[in-house]
Every structure is written in structure tokens, then in C-alpha cells.
Amino acid sequence: MGIEIQGINKNFGDFVALDDINLSIPTGRLTALLGPSGGGKSTLLRIIAGLESADSGVVEIEGIDATHLPAQKRNVGFVFQHYAAFKHMSVAKNIAFGLEIRKKPKAEIAAKVDELLKLVHLSQFAHRLPSQLSGGQRQRMALARALAIEPTVLLLDEPFGALDAKVRKELRDWLRRLHDEVHVTTVFVTHDQEEALEVADTIVVINEGRIEQVGSPDDLYDKPASEFVLSFLGPVTRLRGELVRPHDIFLSRSEIPSAVAGTISRFTRIGFEARFDVTPADGSEPVIVEMTRNEALSEDLKPGDAVWLKHVTGIPATR
């Protein structure tokens, strides 16, 4: 159940957007499609919504074959990156749109719109036009509009991509809380790994039209299936040719057997983080090591100091 995707292919001319995608998205969960721009994740979302058609393959939504259903018959809520607000309608009218199309009784529509306005904290803006709202408010309105039709699945295409960093973070927390309240099967597309790690129950990493890995945020971070997943989900550096995370390197002032010897060539503070560039004694590329500010201060490390580096064992690395 949920969304079942089998053998989906999609080409745009010579460009392969999706290459034999098979995926099960469970009911009631929040799933992120994560990957770089142009990797095919938005295309996959639009195919699920019926806004784009696949060249081949099958899409099932809650057990119903939706492959050939037009968008308006799929009962899917879709939220666009640039809001797609109906500019000539008030906020309340925007939210009521799907219900009016379904010819629900007036009283029922009014009650539902009221409830949703409360849910997205826009009650006092009900009679404004979208142009009188901020970006974050418009996107909340778009979400309420999509939820009004009680969709089988809620699909969000880079929903916070057009917002500034602070609003993006607020809305992200809010989406997570909203999902805990509403429990609708939700799929959202993002290229921001932090967003995916923070919000999603399951992450699907998509690159160059293929699925790289499916798993929980912890799975992906701790057991990446490929170098691509490891490097896409967080910062990486090379130690003895191995790709590792900079905060998984143990840095010592005293010699450790079989560790990499080197010299600190640079020290950067970014808030609570301290970052060292260490040039190995063999002259290879500098290794990046990260630790907390307090760790760095207690060791009194500074450029020119001789140090030894060792990868903390039991933590993933890929060769």
C-alpha cells in the first residue's frame, strides 16, 4: 500500500530523467526524495501527481492503478516551489477551491476552511490576497489548499526552496509537527540534505535518474551505500585515500602507532565548530578535521603544531 512505483522510465529527448525506478512509499510516513538538481526527483514527484506522464512503468496509489488517471482524478495534494497561489482569489477562496470543485455544501466548506486557516495560522489573513502575504505565509496557504481536499497523498516539490534560510527552518519544523498531527502519506522533494535528515522518516537518494539508496536518516548517514550518498549527506575528507567525515577523525598531539603524521596548516572557527586543515607528512592533499570549539581550546591547537590523525573505528567509510 502507500505508493507503489514499478519500472518508471522517463526521457526528455536524449536526456534520461528517470531510469527504471522501483520504489515503495509507505502509508502515513514522511518520505524525502533527496538529490542534486536535475537528478530526476521532481520528475518522479510530478509523475506520481499525474502532472507528467512516464514513458513506461506503473504508479499505484493506495492500491489503485493511477498510471493513466489524469491529475484531477488522483486525489493528490500538490505543493509547488513557487506557491502557485491563485492570485485573483483571497486566501480563504484559495483554500476552498478544491472543495468548491467537489460541490460540497457551503456550510461544510466554510467550516473546513476555518479549521485549515487555524491549522496553518492564517485565520487573520483569510480575506487578504496572496500578494499581500509573505513567502512563508503563501506556502502555508498552499499547504492548507492541498490539505483541504483530504488528499490520499501529499506531494511537495521543493516546498521551502524559494524562502530565506530562517523561514525555511521554521517551516521545516512546522511541517514535521503538522505531519505528526495529520498523518497523511507525504512525499517531499529537496536538494537540502539537512532538511531531509531533519524532517523525513525515510530518505530516497536519487541521482542521475537512479535510486542510490533508500533508508532512515540514521541508516543513510551511518551506512551509506556509496561514496555519492556519503558525500551528499554531509561533509567529507580523504584520509589515506579513504573517504571519511571530518568529525570522525581523531586528532592527537602525541604519536599514535599507524596514524597519519602531519602539520596543522590552517585553523578556522565557524561558531561552535573548529576546523583544522592538516597537511600530511607525505605531502598529500590536506585532511580536514572538525571538532567542537571546546575540544580545540582545551588542546590549545594552532597552526604549525605536529599532530597524528586516526579514523575513529566502527564508523563508516567508503573506499
Binding site: R74, N75, F80, H82, A84, F86
Partner: peptide
């Protein structure tokens, strides 16, 4: 965008 949004909300 607006037309696609309307379609996804059930409008023919």
C-alpha cells in the same frame, strides 16, 4: 503553475 495546481485540486 496555477493551472496545474487547479488540476491537482480536482478541476477539469
Amino acid at each position: 503553475d496555477q493551472e496545474q495546481a487547479a488540476r491537482s485540486l480536482g478541476a477539469g
